[in-house]
Amino acid sequence: MSLTDTTPAAEPIEGPLHDAQEERKARRKKMEKIAKYVLPVLVMALAIWYWDRLVVWNNIPKYILPGPGLVMKTLFSDWGILSSALLVTLKITAMALGVAVIGGVAIAVIFSLSRFAEMSFAPFAVILQVTPIVSIAPLIFIYIDNRFIALLFCAWIVAFFPILSNTTLGLKSVDHNLSDLMTIYRANRWQRLRYLQLPSALPYFMGGLRIAGGLALIGAVVAEYIAGTGGIGSGLAFRILEASYRLNIPRMFAGLILIAATGVIIYGLTSLVSWLALRKWHESALNRE
C-alpha cells in the first residue's frame, strides 16, 4: 500500500469549478452558432445594397445593369411569362432527375450483379458523361422530334452519371465480413442485394443524388439554350435568351434569379431527403457533441 502513502490527499474543492479554456470554447461555440445564420444574411444584404448604390452612384443605365429594385419589380410584373417558363424548366428538371435515379440505380444494380456487364458497358456511360452536353445536344434535337423528350434526354444524360457511378461504388463497398455472414447463412443473390448491398450503397446514392439534382437543372437549362425555339411551352433559359435579344436586361436578371433559387431549393430538398434517410445511422447525418 505504499502507493496510497505517497499520494497526497486531494485538495478539497471550494466553490464552482472554473476552466478558462473550456469557457472560451463554449463562448466561441455560441458565437459560431449565431454567426452561421446571421453572417450569410448580412453579407448578402450588404452585397445587394452595394449593387444598388453602384447603379445609382454611377448612373448605370438599366439596359446595362439594372438595380436590384428594378429586377424585383420586373420579377413581379413579368411573373406571368416567367412563372410558366419556370414551370416548364422545373418539369424537365424533375422528370430528368426521376429518370436518372431510376436508370442510374437500375444500371448500377445490373453492374453489381454482373462484372462482365460492367466491363462491357461502363465505357459507354463514361463517354456519355465526359462529352459536353452542349456538343451532343444539337444532334439529339435532330434525331428526336419531340422537343420535350429531347430536352428531357439532354438533362438525363447530365444527371444520371453521378447516380450511376456513386451507386455502383456503394454496391461494391460492402463490409466483407457481412458479406461472409451472408454466405454462411446461405443468402441468395436477391437477399444479398436487398439486405446488404442496397443499404450499404444508400449513403453513396444520396451523395450522387445531391450532385445529380443540380446537374439536372443545368442540363435542362443548357439544352433549352440550344433548342432555342420559342412560343408556348418554352422554359426559363429560352425566356432569358429572348430577353437578351430584346435588351430586356431586367427580365434576364429576374430569370437568372429564378434559376438560381430553383437550384438552391433543389439542393436543399435533396440534402433534406439524404438527411432523413441517413439520420438514424450514418456518420454524415449525425450530430456530434
Binding site: 463490409d175 465480413n177 457481412l178 461472409d180 447463412y185 439486405y195 446488404l196 438514424k280 445511422w281
Partner: peptide, 16 residues
C-alpha cells in the same frame, strides 16, 4: 442452414 453461428474479429453489425 442453421448449423453454424459465426463471430468475427469485428462485431460486423449492419449499422442501419
Amino acid at each position: 442452414a442453421d448449423d453454424l453461428g459465426v463471430v468475427f474479429q469485428e462485431p460486423t453489425l449492419m449499422p442501419w
